[in-house]
């Protein structure tokens, strides 16, 4: 019995009970702990206060504007960065010359902390969404680029030989073998990218913004509304989970032949 409890595979329903039960336990401990030790809600609010803040945020409509702005930044930045990363990845994956000439700059740029460049982008692109989109794009860019290159380069030798023996041109090899072979890799890059995109947008808003969930966090932090900050953290993490799940579903649909994806870590 004990053995099965620790090592066995659980049925789905038992799993749900375990996960849900443990979650309730943690919430209960949190709430009781805060009350027992009389922690000031200004320092560390209990889950009840946080949930109340989430509720009022949603019900009063206060979140919607900021949520819309941040989602816009995340999605536009993601699209821009992923698109650029993919296109440059295809170019570099096809040409050793481009790789030799361009890749050092790409790596140098990647080693630069994006948070450090963020203030510059605000100077160049203003306090509106544009600067956040650009910051997000620069963060999403690299994982998509790197994965695209690896995917295109790792096409099995014998598949390429088969194409060559059929008199395929270089473009036909790219289009019919390398590109589909690279897709699971590209999706692994997109999966990392989408999680990073959330960070990118918030970092951008921290540096200087007029709206957005990151902006709201700063505002509430200044006014000592700690429960309000916690509430936004929950919303942000829900956004991250949702987008990540969306990419996973898309990946499974598009690259149905790939057995399993190398589980990729987020940020």
């Amino acid at each position: 019995m004990e053995k099965a409890f620790f090592s066995g595979a659980y049925s789905t329903s038992l799993r749900r009970v375990l996960v849900g039960g443990f979650f309730m336990l943690v919430m209960l401990a949190w709430q009781l702990g805060v009350q027992w030790f009389e922690v000031s809600p200004l320092v560390f609010p209990g889950p009840v206060a946080v949930l109340r803040s989430v509720y009022t945020g949603v019900a009063s409509g206060e979140y919607w504007l900021h949520l819309g702005v941040t989602l816009h930044e995340i999605l536009a930045g993601f699209a821009l960065g992923a698109g650029a990363g993919f296109l440059l990845g295809v170019a570099i994956g096809q040409s050793r010359l481009l790789e030799t000439v361009l890749y050092p700059y790409v790596v140098a740029f990647q080693t630069m902390p994006k948070v450090a460049i963020a203030p510059l982008f605000v100077v160049w692109f203003g306090f509106g969404v544009a600067s956040k989109i650009v910051i997000t794009a620069t963060i999403v860019f690299f994982p998509v680029l790197a994965n695209t290159i690896v995917g295109l380069r790792s096409a099995p030798r014998d598949q390429v030989d088969l194409m060559t023996a059929c008199t395929a041109s270089r473009w036909q090899v790219l289009w019919m073998v390398r590109f589909p072979h690279a897709l699971p890799f590209v999706f692994a890059g997109l999966d990392i990218g989408i999680v990073l995109a959330v960070i990118g947008a918030i970092v951008g808003e921290f540096v200087g913004a007029q709206a957005g969930l990151g902006y709201l966090i700063l505002q509430r932090n200044f006014s000592m509304d700690t429960a309000g900050v916690f509430a936004i953290l929950i919303v942000l993490s829900l956004i991250g989970i949702g987008l990540h799940a969306l990419v996973k579903v898309l990946a499974r649909k598009v690259t149905f032949w790939a057995e399993s994806f190398a589980e990729t870590a987020g940020a």
Partner: peptide, 19 residues
């Protein structure tokens, strides 16, 4: 001097495209 349209090749492994 190179691959020919006249030729069909069967390899040791099936070499099928999984997609």
């Amino acid at each position: 001097t190179g691959p020919s349209r006249e030729i069909g090749v069967v390899f040791q492994a099936p070499v099928l495209l999984p997609w």
